[in-house]
Simulated assay, not measured.
Amino acid sequence: MSVAKGEASGFSGASAALGAISEENSWLQQQISGGGLSMEPAAADSAAKVYEEKAGKVDLLVVEAGRLQQVPGLGDYPSGRQLANKFSQKAKNGSTGAADLLTQFAEELRRKADLFRQAKEKYIATDEQISSDLNRGSQQ
């Protein structure tokens, strides 16, 4: 049995949703880099904190999902070994298992927190530039 894009493991929907989150983060990165998005520092810090906390909770789920890799008590018969292998693949297989997808999700949550911090820095830089320009204008 082969696993194509996580479909055999039953997580193709989660994988697609993860791809959408990654694309959204890439779009945010472009907006920040292009100067189209900045955030007030307190709001950015608050949002970043929420995403960091959520990532921490997902990390706990990763540990739990990883534990599903070893399912004792299914016996040493071929059917028991085959079932245990299926559980193992669903738990962790390097890219599309539950633990793998959760790990990627936690990374995207942390990436979003970092994007909010970048937006905050953009806001601060813009604010400082405006202040500097106003000071120069008033001195002339």
Rank of each mutant, 00 (worst) to 15 (best):
Gly13Leu: 11
Gly13Arg: 12
Gly13Gln: 13
Ser15Val: 02
Ser15Cys: 14
Ala16Lys: 13
Ala17Cys: 05
Leu18Thr: 11
Gly19Ser: 06
Gly19Ile: 08
Gly19Lys: 12
Ala20Pro: 09
Ile21Glu: 08
Ile21Ser: 03
Ile21Asn: 05
Ile21His: 11
Glu23Pro: 00
Glu23Leu: 10
Glu24Val: 03
Asn25Tyr: 08
Ser26Tyr: 07
Trp27Phe: 03
Trp27Tyr: 06
Trp27Lys: 02
Leu28Ala: 10
Gln30Ile: 04
Gln30Glu: 15
Gln30Gly: 12
Gln30Leu: 09
Gln31Glu: 14
Gln31Leu: 09
Gln31Asp: 09
Gln31Asn: 04
Ile32Val: 15
Ile32Cys: 06
Ser33Gln: 15
Ser33Arg: 14
Gly34His: 10
Gly35Ala: 09
Gly35Val: 04
Gly36Ser: 13
Leu37Gly: 05
Leu37His: 10
Ser38Leu: 06
Ser38Ile: 03
Ser38Phe: 08
Met39Thr: 15
Met39Asn: 14
Met39Cys: 15
Glu40Tyr: 11
Ala42Gly: 04
Ala44Val: 01
Asp45Ala: 07
Ser46Trp: 12
Ser46Tyr: 13
Ala47Gly: 02
Ala47Val: 03
Ala47Lys: 08
Ala48Thr: 07
Tyr51Asp: 12
Tyr51Gln: 10
Glu52Arg: 07
Glu52Phe: 06
Glu53Met: 07
Glu53Phe: 11
Lys54Ile: 08
Lys54Thr: 09
Lys54Glu: 12
Ala55Gly: 06
Ala55Ile: 04
Gly56Leu: 04
Lys57Arg: 08
Asp59Val: 00
Leu60Asp: 15
Leu60Gly: 14
Leu60Thr: 14
Leu60Phe: 10
Leu61Cys: 14
Leu61Ala: 15
Leu61Asn: 14
Val62Ile: 11
Val62Phe: 06
Val62Trp: 08
Val63Asp: 13
Val63His: 09
Ala65Pro: 07
Ala65Val: 05
Ala65Trp: 05
Gly66Gln: 04
Gly66Cys: 03
Gly66Ala: 02
Gly66Ser: 04
Arg67Cys: 00
Arg67His: 09
Leu68Cys: 10
Leu68Ile: 05
Leu68Ala: 03
Gln70Ile: 01
Gln70Ser: 09
Pro72Tyr: 09
Pro72Gln: 06
Gly73Thr: 07
Leu74Lys: 02
Leu74Ser: 04
Leu74Arg: 06
Gly75Gln: 07
Gly75Glu: 08
Asp76Arg: 01
Asp76Ile: 00
Asp76Tyr: 00
Asp76Trp: 00
Tyr77Gly: 01
Pro78Arg: 03
Pro78Gly: 06
Pro78Asp: 11
Pro78Met: 04
Ser79Glu: 08
Ser79Thr: 04
Ser79Met: 01
Gly80Ile: 02
Gly80Trp: 03
Arg81Lys: 12
Arg81Asn: 05
Gln82Thr: 00
Gln82Arg: 02
Asn85Met: 10
Asn85Ser: 12
Asn85Pro: 00
Asn85Lys: 12
Asn85Gln: 13
Lys86Thr: 05
Lys86Tyr: 12
Phe87His: 01
Phe87Cys: 01
Ser88Asp: 06
Gln89Thr: 10
